[in-house]
Design a protein around this nucleic acid. Structure first.
Ligand SMILES: [Mn+2]
Ligand SMILES: [Mn+2]
Ligand SMILES: [Zn+2]
Ligand SMILES: [Zn+2]
Lengths: 140, 140
DNA sequence: GTAGTTATTGTAAAAACTTGCAATAAGGAA
DNA sequence: TTCCTTATTGCAAGTTTTTACAATAACTAC
């Protein structure tokens, strides 16, 4: 499915507009499929859309995250990155070497239910990053 | 217990030094007891130690976090904050109004054990912030 | 106490990120 | 198509955070 046909109606329904800038940034996120820093998104999207500026990239990524179309995640260096929203998952990162593995969302589902019942909060769901020591680093 | 008598041996054992800057920053974190931004830490610690600079505050907070003496946490605005390490807990923040409640660490303990057995990672333990919609905002 | 080693700091500059506001252009109406 | 409304962008400047490196001072050994 093309980006346009998929996202335009979603934006319209909320009173927002589709623009070449949003299109290009969504395109980059979808094509790369991984966590990208704003600078990386900017560099790649600039090729698709000359004239694009960095403030627009920052604003757009935050906008897409608010709408649930992109997911923010903090990299090991503490800087914010984004990836296209899709299959729910989480991350487990090694404090020592930075090695990173994905965590199935199903592992967190019962915790989320528990949180909802004990707190009264709803729609709990984050793209969480946990930290630990990987098997390799445990030996050293 | 005084900050000095508690922390000096911990630093020494790892080959690090206690300095007036680290002392002042630890003092601020302990005295406030809440999440503080680097700017807030700087402003308060500067009163205790004139001449202290911002880069030192940033470096020291990261240093204390690496040693496990301070805990980093991302505020709702995405900016990094720190608090003194102590009773383990997590946070649940409302996406709408920013309201925040603490989550007992015990709620996450079984998840952490599950993560460790399925991944092979060890010493998993983060100061996690979950997002959801608070009871008040659910009505609106 | 003095001297030596080097972890830590301050300085200055760079890089990353945010903000205010005027100019632009997307989408709706005629 | 053309006009209108206003969401969105680019620009310029501000703020926050990081970095390189020389100066400092904490600790050790004597
Ligand atoms: Mn991810
Ligand atoms: Mn906390
Ligand atoms: Zn590792
Ligand atoms: Zn709320």
């Amino acid at each position: 499915m093309s980006c346009s046909s998929e996202y335009v109606p979603q934006l319209r329904a909320l009173g927002y507009r589709m623009t070449p800038q949003r299109m290009a940034i969504l395109h980059v996120l979808r094509h790369e499929g991984t966590h990208l820093s704003p600078a990386e998104v900017y560099k790649k999207a600039l090729l698709e859309l000359p004239g694009l500026t960095e403030p627009t990239v920052y604003r757009t990524l935050e906008f897409l995250a608010d709408l649930g179309l992109a997911r923010p995640a903090y990299a090991t260096n503490g800087r914010l990155t984004y990836e296209i929203a899709g299959n729910d998952h989480h991350h487990l990162v090694c404090k020592h070497c930075g090695d990173e593995i994905e965590v199935e969302h199903t592992l967190l589902e019962s915790l989320y239910r528990l949180l909802e019942t004990t707190s009264g909060y709803r729609s709990i769901g984050s793209h969480v990053t946990f930290f630990g020591i990987c098997p390799k680093c445990q030996k050293n």
